[in-house]
Design a protein around this nucleic acid. Structure first.
Length: 268
DNA sequence: ATGGTCGCTTGGCGA
């Protein structure tokens, strides 16, 4: 069977509810992971989503952050982990039952953006971001299991490779692409030998972006993008990877999110 | 070097 998993930083699920359904059909998503839903659990728009996604796991908060996993496949287990001692809705996981293929564990993260100044001594937000990734690496080591079939997605707010930003040189001191951040993210990746699904299909030296600032008037013309959104899979799933799609056409929709979705197809 | 735009919420924060 084919399984399609999509990640998208939606920047308000209530404002873009119609776009979720549009995207779900466009990408033929079986599982859709959202970040920055910006809503408390009680106000999450279940009614507008339940037809396409009968199973939903939500972790929201007021005004900021918030993550959700929408699924056509039954969710048989959920978890919501706290990071850096904060209850700030940056993680949710769901174990789905994928027919004969068995269980797959999906983790959806919204890593802190980190503010503007890339110095943890003077910028608490940047310190928080680094600490968050350190905790992720510890979590990875602690929960590793060679046979586990696990997928990790989300807005990691880090563009790790040179071709993940529009200008490597100009962004080396810009939060999201500094060496200390890319080192931290690489440590998270190696804890479970995660495979970067986008770079599994797209050569490492080919530019690939998932985010363009709202401040660029013509995002496509200037193309000052970054690849902040990621889909990683455990090595046990590598042989099942069958396709990747960066759905940047959504950036041209009316009232777009500043992030575009990424869709991974697996044959399992 | 600076400012540019969003969303949530209603003054200002976070991205």
């Amino acid at each position: 069977m084919s399984l399609k998993i999509v990640t998208w930083n939606i920047n308000s699920v209530r404002l873009r509810l119609a776009q979720v359904n549009e995207l779900a059909k466009l990408a033929k998503a079986d599982i859709l992971c959202l970040q920055e839903i910006k809503v408390i659990d009680d106000l999450f728009p279940h009614d507008g989503l339940k037809e396409l996604f009968p199973y939903r796991a939500v972790k929201g908060m007021k005004a900021y952050n918030g993550v959700a996993i929408l699924s056509k496949l039954p969710i048989i287990e959920e978890s919501r982990l706290q990071w850096c001692g904060k209850d700030d809705a940056r993680h949710i996981s769901a174990t789905v039952e994928a027919g004969k293929a068995g269980k797959i564990e999906v983790h959806n993260f919204y890593i802190p953006a980190g503010g503007d100044e890339p110095d943890p001594e003077i910028n608490e937000k940047f310190a928080h971001k680094l600490k968050f990734m350190k905790e992720m690496a510890r979590w990875g080591k602690k929960t590793i299991s060679p046979k586990a079939r696990r997928i990790m997605v989300g807005d990691f707010n880090v563009a790790p490779l040179e071709a993940d930003v529009w200008s490597h040189k100009q962004l080396l001191k810009i939060v999201s692409h500094t060496p200390v951040e890319t080192d931290h993210l690489e440590k998270v990746r190696t804890t479970q030998d995660w495979v970067d699904a986008v770079r599994h299909f797209i050569p490492e030296d080919e530019k690939a972006f998932s985010w363009w600032s709202y401040r660029n008037r013509d995002w496509r013309a200037s193309n000052r993008g970054r690849r902040l959104d990621h889909i990683w899979v455990t090595p046990s799933l590598t042989e099942h990877l069958s396709g990747i799609e960066i759905l940047d056409q959504t950036r041209d929709w009316t009232k777009p999110s500043d992030h575009c979705p990424i869709a991974l197809e697996l044959s399992i």
